[in-house]
């Protein structure tokens, strides 16, 4: 067995929380620049310029690109040959989140109970998804997820008869109804299949893909392209003030499902689609 020290994991997670919030990925920057070229609305262009400028400041000064530094969603792939020395993996991640959000001057956005709403003070607990994979490496991705776009997300249990058209209409309609609220231009995570909860999780996981990447299955690659075109005809535009660039990308995640079901889910993400990965 390969041992990885508790503190190594904790420190890595703390750094990922900060880096993700300070540095918007190059793929998003490139997509925003492309958006600026194709945007027709003057207001829309101004907004895209402001967002690009903002991301530059955040990077240069190491400050959060958005004040909503999110719920820390942590995706873990742990090799079956790895053990954590000196503590539990979940605790190392949780303590890493607390450290990253405190040391990095990131906003603490988590309340300990949804109805009594007292802030936990250190942005814990994180949401942790663990997969056990072959090998002796530990891969950790931190995806800080803001609340505004999350509120525009939805799971819908369609019937198999609804087919591809039903799925596509649901995705487009979800973006249409979201209007300005999720901070467009958005990244749309769309999932189909699995169970009720697996589908929702996959819609979020879909957002970890690089903007500009092509779905490996040509059937879904074509569907992503079609959906992006349809969404960018809605007219919502940057910040919902009207324009061509409503979404930067649509990512589909499909999964096997039951003969009676066709779960679908849309998880919306703002233009600040943040995620950083480390392999230990």
């Amino acid at each position: 067995m390969r041992e990885i020290a508790f503190d190594t994991v904790k420190d890595a997670v703390a750094k990922l929380c900060m880096d993700a919030n300070y540095d918007i990925g190059d793929d998003i920057i490139a997509a925003l620049k492309h958006g600026l070229e194709i945007e027709e609305s003057e207001t829309g262009k101004d907004i895209l310029k402001q967002i690009l400028k903002n991301n530059e400041i955040a990077h240069d000064e190491r400050v959060p690109s958005c004040q909503d530094t999110g719920f820390a969603v942590v995706w873990v792939e742990i090799g079956s040959g790895v053990t954590i020395a000196g503590g539990e993996l979940n605790d190392a991640i949780s303590q890493g989140v607390a450290k990253g959000y405190t040391d990095g001057y990131l906003r603490k956005s988590i309340v300990e109970d949804p109805l009594r709403r007292k802030n936990t003070g250190d942005n814990t607990p994180p949401i942790i998804y663990i997969d056990i994979v072959p090998g002796d490496q530990l891969k950790i991705t931190v995806q800080p997820k803001g609340g505004g776009a999350e509120n525009m997300s939805e799971v819908k249990m369609l019937t198999p008869a609804a087919g591809a058209e039903g799925f596509k209409d649901f995705v487009v309609d979800r973006v249409r109804r979201s209007k300005a609220n999720p901070c467009p231009p958005v990244i749309v995570g769309a999932a189909i299949g699995g169970t009720f909860e697996k589908c929702a999780m996959n819609a979020k996981k879909a957002q970890l893909r690089k903007v500009g990447s092509v779905h490996p299955d040509p059937f879904y690659a074509d569907m992503e392209k079609e959906l992006l075109e349809r969404i960018n005809k809605l007219g919502i535009g940057p910040q919902g003030l009207g324009g061509r660039v409503t979404a930067l990308a649509v990512f589909i995640e499909a999964f096997p499902c039951h003969i009676a079901t066709m779960p679908t889910a849309v998880n919306m993400c703002c233009h600040a689609s943040r995620h950083k990965t480390v392999v230990l």
Binding site: I47, Q50, I51, K53, N54, N55, I57, A58, E61, V63, P64, S65, C66, Q67, D68, G148, A180, C183, Q239, L241, C270, H271, A272
Partner: peptide, 13 residues
């Protein structure tokens, strides 16, 4: 008024 969502570092200036 709308301010640009996600332009938080710029607005802080």
């Amino acid at each position: 008024f709308a301010a640009v969502g996600g332009a938080a570092a710029l607005i802080a200036k």
